[in-house]
Design a protein around this nucleic acid. Sequence first.
DNA 1: CTGTTAGCGCCTTCAC
DNA 2: GTGAAGGCGCTAACAG
Lengths: 339, 339
Amino acid sequence: MSTIKDIAKEAGVSIATVSIVLNGKGKERKISEETQTRIYTIAQQLNYVPNQSAKKLRVAQEDSYAIAFYWATDFRINYLARITLGIQEGIMKQNKNIRLTVMPYKVDQLEKLMKSTQNEFFNGIIIANMSDKDMEFLNTDFVPPCPIVLFNRESPKFSSVTMDNYKVGQSVARHFLDKGLFDAGVLTHDTTFPIMRQWMQGFLDTYRDAGHAIGEENIFLCQTSSASAFEVCKRIHAERRMPRAMFCESDVLAHGMLFACHELGIAIPDAVEVFTVGINMPEINDYTVPSLSRIDIPMGEIGEDCLHLVVDLIEKKQPMPTVEYLEGKKIIGQSSPLG
Amino acid sequence: MSTIKDIAKEAGVSIATVSIVLNGKGKERKISEETQTRIYTIAQQLNYVPNQSAKKLRVAQEDSYAIAFYWATDFRINYLARITLGIQEGIMKQNKNIRLTVMPYKVDQLEKLMKSTQNEFFNGIIIANMSDKDMEFLNTDFVPPCPIVLFNRESPKFSSVTMDNYKVGQSVARHFLDKGLFDAGVLTHDTTFPIMRQWMQGFLDTYRDAGHAIGEENIFLCQTSSASAFEVCKRIHAERRMPRAMFCESDVLAHGMLFACHELGIAIPDAVEVFTVGINMPEINDYTVPSLSRIDIPMGEIGEDCLHLVVDLIEKKQPMPTVEYLEGKKIIGQSSPLG
DNA sequence: CTGTTAGCGCCTTCAC
DNA sequence: GTGAAGGCGCTAACAG
């Protein structure tokens, strides 16, 4: 990386002159045309790129925070949009100069990222989509370089904004049980994401406690795509194993299931009722055919609260492990109406 | 904003000691427990927040670029996710330390943002979702502080990655015309986004040139939501004005239309064929009922190319206004099958 | 155990 | 027209 000093040396002028010219103030300061073009040419040759840290340091921003948003890249890409938007709304409500840097990372690779020097330069970090392995790493004796807030996770060591995920599954189970739908199944996937297991656990436990334990044969695994859910549903139907009520782990899976039922001529909700967790855009689930009954995870709000919390932690207005709880929003659509 | 100097003065120690302690190296450097706690307490009292620019300057990153992604907040929130992901993929392919900062702004307010000192601290800027007014501003004699790349826009002055948007509409029109569907309509909205008008224009012109001009009465306006499209479709049907073929400006609108047709018992594609521009997640449109025929805008690729281009501009490897073209991807679903 | 000092790259004031 | 010098906040080497 070349600096204005290099350019000055090369051009045979002082660094001040270079700075003036490169900031477009050459004319105003009456630097000769010839010197100016020489400086521009050399800057180009040397591939000069201004160092923004130096610039910023000089100009001294007041109340300026650099916050990183780490998110594991996985199938739920819309997730990112909703959370980012929520965080941004949080930023706008703060009367501060906050820069949000999006840092994607591969699932299970948080350790590598945290140990790199990268995050030495943030004032705070928000982490979303953490896998079990990543969580495990965080809970070791690793010392973070700055305040960290976890998105929808719980940890004894770190602050977070989360929800009662077990209750999500419970609530869906009660909905089905109240309607007398005892033959239920779950469409899920072998996942490295812990909250999903909590949803399922709450559902399964509630059924078991009600005396209608759901057997292994009614737990259907698929990949994290609509396409996979579609295939699995077709198979379930072919094998005549379709239960009377199905709890889908995510709307991505539910979309695949709706499509399969449509193709196969299975009436929803008459032949099978569908309930899902809404982790995508709520709007989309209102206009599927039929519209989806679901519990929407308030991604935006969680993101916004994460931002507020991380700022509070940076400014030491909250004790280090602070945990905040939000509620999911139950929405009844056509796929599983009220009893 | 207090600095380590303030803390040092308050604690009666040197700034070096403060730096050591605050960086967690107190034990290793054998700073007394008492001094350490004193420093921590004072830091907390003074509300100390480390200046990351200073830190970064000192530690000297090699080849580190700060790139801003400006995006106008509007209804197409998934848009953001796809683009960000594309940009990030571009970043990963570069062997450089690139920070992507997401900067949302209100539609038509680009001028305000560009004139703030904010963007003095970026090496490059990618702008998405620009409105006419914002575009107009850019094309004045405004001098940008760094290279700028426009996402899916064209400008005589700025570099961009874009597509032949007019051709998108043309292609849809030809698809309908080839099938003999001369009674066509468009579901669109009065928009401040120029590319959408190009889609529609290509469509309308092609129909007109084929001798089947589409009248005002077949141009249906709605808001930018599925809900609005749903309402408009119900009205069109009630007034018996539903055309034989409909071109929707975005999949968000198409979803509303599919739902309306489902509710009203209008068979797709038998009674009305639907074609849309896919600006959302391609996957979702494969699992609507029925699946959507569409031209998908390659958001991810465009984003990735924007990143590569902006880096090239920063490094002066491309002349200033460089324009790159990509192609949309035509996908035939059930809502308007091949002739 | 703690302090002094020398920069990191840039911009601005002042002097020539 | 141009140069020299100072300092933004921080860290690391070196000195006590």
